[in-house]
């Protein structure tokens, strides 16, 4: 098995899986119907992308697993998503801030992966990129609308940005898996995406009249599985409950 490629695919698929699940927690609870539908649609896209990423990961692993087995039968320490996506939803503003901070990275990353030397990865990226363009358009618009909104909404968006900012840096940390992907022409070096990311979020957050925190400190441990936050385990107990209680259940 190509261990580095497997790890890379888990990182892509676990990001979309965990964020997709988090966003789906809003279904039926959003402030207005249109936002409920938008969040559910976003979650659906992310889960669909997960099926492609984890499906390919299972193929590379070559142990007879599939996307469902990888999603429902691994425990917290085997997940490779960045910590940002497992952060709790908080209020609606925090959910949209988390979405925006991720969408901005996601859109840039998928753009690069469209020219991957691996044809399957390039195809998944091309498909996902179309969907993520819509995600970013909406999350950026909403961050501006709420940030540059009322005193209350502005304060909540600034609090959300302050809370989530220490989780942004992990998306741009490079390790041995990334070095192997760069060498094979499969994926870009995460560090190389930072400049474009900072420019993109800088523009939007300025429009939103929000202040990016000064701190360079960043939590890590998600994408290498070294240490997830306490929130991931709680999420998995919900997401995996059915397959754990009734192994192999189908409908």
């Amino acid at each position: 098995m190509d261990q580095a490629l497997f790890q890379f695919l888990l990182r892509m698929g676990d990001n979309t899986l965990i964020l997709g699940h988090r966003v789906s927690e809003w279904c039926g609870h959003s402030p207005v119907l249109e936002e409920d539908i938008a969040l559910a649609n976003t979650a659906l896209d992310l889960i669909g992308q997960t099926q492609m990423w984890l499906g390919l990961a299972a193929e590379v692993q070559g142990e007879g697993a599939d996307a469902d087995k990888l999603a429902f039968l691994r425990d917290a320490w085997d997940f490779r998503n960045v910590l940002l996506v497992e952060m709790p939803n908080g209020d609606f503003g925090q959910t949209l801030m988390r979405q925006f901070l991720f969408d901005a990275w996601h859109s840039i990353m998928l753009g690069r992966l469209m020219t991957s030397s691996n044809e399957q990865i390039a195809a998944i990226a091309a498909k996902a990129s179309k969907e993520v363009t819509y995600h970013l358009e909406r999350s950026a618009d909403t961050v501006v609308g709420l940030g540059d909104g009322t005193e209350e909404s502005h304060a909540r968006m600034q609090a959300a940005l302050d809370y989530l900012w220490p989780y942004v840096g992990e998306m741009f940390v490079s390790d041995d898996v990334d070095a192997a992907m760069v060498a094979a022409g499969i994926a870009p070096d995460p560090k190389a995406l930072r400049e474009e990311y900072d420019a993109l979020i800088g523009r939007v957050l300025a429009d939103a009249t929000l202040t990016i925190p000064d701190s360079k400190f960043g939590h890590t441990g998600g994408r290498d599985g070294r240490m997830h936050t306490e929130h991931l385990g709680h999420l998995l107990t919900q997401m995996q409950w059915l397959q754990r209680a009734y192994p192999g259940a189908t409908w």
């Binding site: 249109e34 936002e35 539908i37 938008a38 649609n41 976003t42 659906l44 896209d45 969907e131 819509y134 358009e137 909406r138």
Partner: peptide, 13 residues
Amino acid sequence: KVSQFGSTPCKAH
């Protein structure tokens, strides 16, 4: 435009 998302993934509202 009311929303980029609609009743199914392929539609906007």
